[in-house]
Amino acid sequence: MSLQISINGQLVPKEDAKISVFDHGLLYGDGVFEGMRSYAGKIFKLDDHLDRLWDSAQAICLEIPMPREEMAEHCKATLAANNIIDGYIRLIVTRGAGSLGLDPNRCSNPQVIIIADKISLYPAEYYEHGLHLVTASTIRNHPAALNPRIKSLNYLNNIIAKMEGLQAGCVEALMLNHKGDVAECTGDNVFIVNKGVLSTPSTDSGILEGITRNAVLEIADQLGIPTRQATLTRHDLFVADECFLTGSAAEVVPVVQLDNRTIGDGKPGPITKRLLEAFHKLVRQ
């Protein structure tokens, strides 16, 4: 059976899932999206994802053409239609079809697209042995240009940095902000552990406020692990005892090397492992 895609609330086979070539989501990356995970048939942190989707849409003056409750039901229905228990949901809202010009006022009928499928972002060996990262020369978008807290369809900034990582033989790359401080990776938030304290860049460092990031901070509090959200530099990562990344697709993945510097003892650390185990328990509740 063909994968079923939800377009504006209607399920259609993957081969028939189409939108206009004049849609500003395609022409200009004008739209917003969320990437969510399902575990045991339940969408993890669905309400938090919808909060962020509505915030992103509000920030770019995009009116989402259906109520939150209906959106949530369509996400669940798309999972069910594809018999997916543990999977990934991509929820997209575009500006809609318009002209070849930039004027968003000429667009009509925003499109709501929901794709449910299975995903494995990184091979199992990376979770066991850890990632190697390089620092990209491409910086994260300046917040005054396109605020990274908006999860928009315009991901070219991240893609260029991702290319730098791949060209260096790494599956991820660290991105700095316009001040030269650590922001995030191309698709994941960054954490370090140093002397038992868990640290991650604050939102004013030019990051996307990740749903998994926030879940890990909550887990750490419950486990009694001290946390802080602060400005971090590459030096902080170089001298950290542990490092890991978080994201809806990546979940929690260790990092053992940055720019040819070994982090800690070069193996996933005990706090990273503890948080990963607790996260796996949380998503199955």
Rank of each mutant, 00 (worst) to 15 (best):
L27M: 13
C61M: 15
I84L: 10
K45I: 12
G96C: 08
K45Y: 13
L46Y: 02
T78M: 04
L27N: 07
A40V: 12
R90W: 12
A97T: 11
F44N: 03
I85K: 14
T78Q: 06
E70M: 14
A59D: 13
V93L: 10
I64T: 04
I92D: 11
L27W: 03
W54H: 13
E70D: 15
V32K: 00
D23T: 02
T94L: 06
R95N: 10
A57H: 01
G25K: 00
T94W: 02
R95C: 10
G35N: 03
T78I: 07
E63T: 14
T94E: 08
L50T: 06
G35R: 01
G31C: 07
V21A: 14
R37C: 05
G31A: 04
L46G: 03
A57V: 06
L79V: 09
A57N: 06
A80K: 11
R37Y: 03
K76W: 09
I64L: 07
S38T: 09
D30L: 04
E34F: 00
G25R: 00
Y39T: 14
D48L: 15
L27I: 09
M36C: 12
G31F: 00
V21F: 09
E34W: 00
L27Q: 10
K45H: 14
M71E: 09
F44W: 09
G25S: 02
G29K: 01
G29S: 09
R68E: 13
I43T: 05
S56I: 01
Y88F: 14
G35W: 00
N82V: 06
E63G: 12
K42Q: 15
R90K: 15
Y88T: 08
D30G: 08
I92Q: 10
I43R: 00
C61A: 15
V32I: 12
I64Q: 03
V21G: 13
K76R: 15
V21Y: 06
P65N: 04
G96K: 00
F22E: 13
N83R: 15
V93E: 07
G31D: 03
F33G: 06
A80S: 14
K45P: 10
M36F: 08
L91A: 10
R68Y: 06
D51Y: 01
L50R: 02
S56V: 01
E70F: 06
W54G: 08
E63K: 12
L46S: 03
Y28P: 05
